[in-house]
Amino acid sequence: MTFNSHNDVVLSVQDLSISYLTPRGRLRAVSHASFDLHQGETLALIGESGCGKSTLNLGLMRLLPTNARVDGGRIEYTRRDGAPIDVLRLNDRQLRQFRWSECSMVFQAALNSLNPVIRVRDMFYDTAAAHGKRFRRQVRDRALDLFRRVRLDPERVFNAYPHELSGGMRQRVLLALALLLNPQVVILDEPTTAVDILTQRTIIEVLKAIREELNFSTIFISHDLSVAAEMADTVATMYAGEIVEIGPVYELFYRPRHAYTLGLLEAVPRLSAGEEELVSIPGSPPDLIEPPAGCKFHVRCPFATDRCRVEPPPLEPVGENHLAACWEKARVLTHALENAYHDAPR
């Protein structure tokens, strides 16, 4: 799939910056992030823990905790009827309508995402009622249909309390809940990290299937590059709050231009790896309160030059729909091509 035309963009994020006010000072968790999400596209966000993936996505739904501030930028959303929505300008009532019916989210802490004292069905009814859908029969039918799609026993799960469900089941309940109002954008924050490998597989399969059937766009956050490769049309690499590289999945995995993307790829274990060594990225992510000057990755970067230490690299086009923010693009690419270090994404 390629996404060239500009009129099928559902979500456009421009220059978005978000900080947290902490006792130690201002923590820049997302810094000048920009990307477009097209209809039916799956965008995978990859990056180490603490690089701002969840913050970015909470920002998109304006669900940031009270100590967070949006420092600047725009979030433009286009409804199915073509009407544009400036998400950062919505008032409380409009925001409530926007949430879930246009853009929903499966949270990272899926196990604790359901209210323990009420039944699953009441969470479905609540959600529908909040969006003016008070016909319980319809809500029920829709929910049961979704449960079937995510391979849950519809009747039993619908009437269950959250604690009666396993982690994998709860994850899928949330997925069904996220799809209840047929939103255009579904954000999945690490939907597979809290569950075992088999459940992980089931969830991936389910996701791929319903994505085809229900046609929504997805922002998919993952630590797992092989999962990202399998799911995504486009991949964005985040480092220390910045999107440092974004491009079509094939491009980014085979012709990476940012040293950090390359580092992540080299850290993926491969079946065919043989005696080749697994290279993990040395060092740890920088302090976001006082980030290093120049390229924030330079401290850990094997390609770093003097320029990298002082001058932050701009995010520049390096191919079709492919952008990277690295001064040493050419050397990174050469290195990547020389060491054909990874298997083709399936």
Binding site: Q97, R99, W100
Partner: peptide
């Protein structure tokens, strides 16, 4: 988390 999720659900 379920409070945040409830807000997210509108």
């Amino acid at each position: 988390d379920y409070i945040t999720v409830a807000r997210a659900r509108g």
